[in-house]
Design a binder for these strands. Structure first.
Ligand code: MN
Ligand code: MN
Ligand code: ZN
Ligand code: ZN
Lengths: 146, 146
DNA sequence: GTTAGACTTAGAACAATTCTAAGCCTATAA
DNA sequence: TTATAGGCTTAGAATTGTTCTAAGTCTAAC
């Protein structure tokens, strides 16, 4: 069963964490509250800023620890689109991404199921881990009418 | 025209660089010699080590400058599969990758042309830059016969 | 109440990359 | 020939994102 948060009610979040074998500390609940308010793509720094929007209460180390834990428990998934910055994606359903190379924004693409069909066989003695499709896009040059 | 190196003959490399508006300095020819000996996936550090296999003659700064220049001129392409490490791919034909999460090895997959067909329309006012497909694989668990 | 283990934290350490600013090389112009 | 200018290379410093360390805090069970 694929649990999803309906509201930002702390109890629901607490539940979600417990369901994934994570003891719901106040810091973890805060981080989860940000990630699961809606499907989103945040980097660690963005989570850190949001989680401390009022007063600073969660350290950067804890943000990283928590994100790492959520990844390990499958609550969140990492997306690599650029060197030196990881995005944490609270949509864990199989899907792909548009990446706007100008703004750095990620947008979801529903999984196609098609790419897989046409894949060559995996190398010997290996099994599939995941398929990531990143469609890099850029803002269009102003085209002059011909 | 899509020029490719047949041998490691310096003259051919010099030609290739000139054809891409790059003045062929000794350092650039060395770096190109490593990248284009055969299609390969190197990170900057690997290029640095290889280029200085005998005696140290090319600085790390120059390796990065050169790789950046080759990317800008389309001689080489970057692949992002992990945070904090860029691979430089001397195969610039459209293609995709297997990524062995255990060994960190990249293997080419001939472009399918399929993923594209099933893509949703691009967001408004954007144009396609590139499509990267990364198939993450892992060494198979020893399966016991049932 | 104690205690053990899990959790959090500030700051140091780290790794990949980029920047800086000074020297070098080479092609052309005097 | 020698000067000059631009592009190129370089060592090392700086930056960035992330992980590590070691000490303190919390909490749940005894
Ligand atoms: Mn997503
Ligand atoms: Mn490749
Ligand atoms: Zn779930
Ligand atoms: Zn070419």
């Amino acid at each position: 069963m694929d649990m999803k948060i309906q509201s930002t009610v702390p109890e629901a979040i607490t539940e979600l964490l417990r369901a994934h074998q994570i003891t719901p500390t106040s810091q973890r609940v805060k981080v989860a509250g940000i990630l699961f308010a809606e499907p989103a793509h945040f980097c660690a720094e963005q989570v850190y800023v949001r989680v401390n929007a009022d007063d600073a209460e969660v350290s950067k180390a804890t943000v990283y620890n928590t994100l790492g834990l959520f990844v390990a428990r499958g609550l969140v998934r990492q997306v690599f689109v650029e060197p030196g910055k990881v995005f944490y994606d609270s949509n864990t359903k199989p899907h792909h991404h548009f990446y706007d190379t100008g703004s750095g924004e990620l947008t979801d693409i529903d999984a196609l199921g098609v790419a897989l069909h046409e894949l060559p066989p995996l190398p010997a003695d290996t099994e599939l881990d995941s398929v990531d499709v990143i469609v890099r896009i850029k803002r269009q040059f102003k085209t002059r009418r011909v």
